[in-house]
Amino acid sequence: MRRCITLGLLACLAVLSVATAATAAPVAGASLRLLPGEYLWTPELAPVGPVLVLVSLPEQRAYVYRNGVRIGVATASTGKPGYDTPTGVFSVLQKKREHYSNLYDDAPMPYMQRLTWDGIALHAGRVPGYPASHGCVRLPEAFAEKLYDVTTRGMTVVITDDPARVPMLADPSLFPASPPAPTVGTRVADLSLPVPAGAGFSWQSGKAPPGQVTVVLSLSDREMVVMREGVEIGRGPVKLAGTPPVGTRAYLLLDGVQPDAATSLPDRPRRRWLRVLGDGADDPAGVLGQAGLDADPRFLARVYDILVPGATLVVTDEALRRAPALTVIEAGDEIPPARPHAEGQ
Rank of each mutant, 00 (worst) to 15 (best):
T116I: 00
A291S: 05
T152R: 15
L217A: 08
D171E: 14
V188M: 13
V55F: 03
R66V: 02
Q345D: 15
L10Y: 10
G236A: 08
L93W: 04
Y148C: 00
R228A: 04
Q290V: 06
K96G: 07
D260Q: 12
P336G: 06
A124P: 01
A281I: 09
V18G: 08
A25R: 15
S173V: 10
M1H: 11
T186L: 06
A46Y: 02
D105H: 12
T75L: 04
R268W: 07
V127P: 03
S264W: 09
A28T: 10
R322M: 11
A170Y: 04
P324E: 10
A107E: 01
Y100C: 02
P180I: 11
D294T: 14
P47G: 03
R235H: 03
V53A: 15
C12T: 13
A46T: 01
L191K: 07
P245G: 02
M224N: 00
L169S: 13
P172W: 02
A262M: 05
A76C: 11
A197C: 05
E232F: 00
E343D: 15
T23Q: 13
G200F: 05
V195L: 02
W117K: 11
S202T: 15
A250S: 05
A285W: 09
C4Q: 14
G125A: 01
V188L: 10
Y130S: 13
L169K: 13
R268G: 06
D171C: 10
T116K: 03
E334F: 09
L16I: 08
D255T: 14
L300K: 05
V213L: 12
V18P: 07
W41H: 13
R61A: 03
A291M: 06
C136M: 01
S264N: 15
D84K: 07
P297C: 05
D294S: 13
L313W: 03
R222K: 13
F175G: 04
S101C: 00
P179S: 15
F201V: 02
P47S: 05
A144C: 01
L254E: 00
D106R: 14
M155N: 10
D190I: 11
V15D: 15
E229R: 12
Q60D: 07
T183I: 10
M109H: 01
L52W: 01
G125E: 00
W273Y: 04
V18N: 11
T263A: 15
V328Y: 05
P244Q: 06
D162H: 12
L52I: 13
R249M: 10
G198Q: 02
L254A: 07
R270M: 14
S56M: 01
E343K: 08
S178T: 14
P131Q: 05
P131N: 06
V53C: 09
D282H: 10
T243P: 12
D106L: 13
E223L: 14
E223A: 08
A331P: 07
V315W: 00
G198F: 03
T327V: 06
T87D: 00
P128T: 03
L265G: 06
T23W: 04
G247K: 12
Q113C: 08
R272P: 05
